[in-house]
Amino acid sequence: MKDGDRWMRLKEEMLDAAASLGIDKIGVASADPFIELKQILIRHRELGRESGFEEPDLDKRTNPSLLFDSPQSIIAIAIAYPSKLVDPPKSEPGARRGIIARASWGQDYHTVLRDRLSKLEAWLKERVPELRVESMVDTGALSDRAVAERAGLGWGGKNCMIMNDELGSWIYLGEMITNLPLPPDKPLADGCGECTKCIDACPTGALVGPGQLDSKRCISFLTQTKGFLEDEVMRKIGNRLYGCDTCQTVCPVNRRKNWTHHPELQPDHELVKPLLVPLLTIGNREFKERYGSMSSAWRGKKPIQRNAVIALGNFKEKSAVGDLIGVLQDDPRPVMRGTAAWSLGKIGGEEAEAALQAAVLKETDEEAKVYIERAMAEMAECSEMESI
Score class of each variant (00 low, 15 high):
P88A: 14
K90V: 13
S91R: 08
S91G: 15
E92L: 13
P93E: 09
P93W: 01
G94I: 09
G94K: 09
G94T: 12
A95W: 11
G98V: 03
I99P: 07
A101N: 08
A101S: 15
R102K: 15
R102T: 12
A103I: 11
A103G: 06
A103H: 14
A103K: 08
W105V: 12
G106N: 13
Q107C: 11
Q107V: 15
Y109Q: 09
Y109P: 09
Y109S: 09
Y109F: 14
H110F: 07
H110L: 07
H110E: 10
T111W: 08
T111D: 15
R114G: 05
D115Y: 06
R116W: 05
R116L: 05
L117A: 04
L117H: 04
L117G: 06
S118Q: 10
S118K: 12
S118T: 10
K119N: 09
L120E: 02
L120I: 00
E121D: 10
A122M: 00
A122D: 01
W123A: 00
L124C: 01
K125H: 05
R127A: 02
R127W: 02
V128H: 04
P129D: 07
P129V: 02
E130H: 10
E130C: 02
L131H: 03
L131E: 09
V133T: 14
V133H: 07
E134G: 04
S135H: 04
S135E: 10
M136S: 09
V137Q: 04
D138Y: 12
A141D: 11
A141H: 13
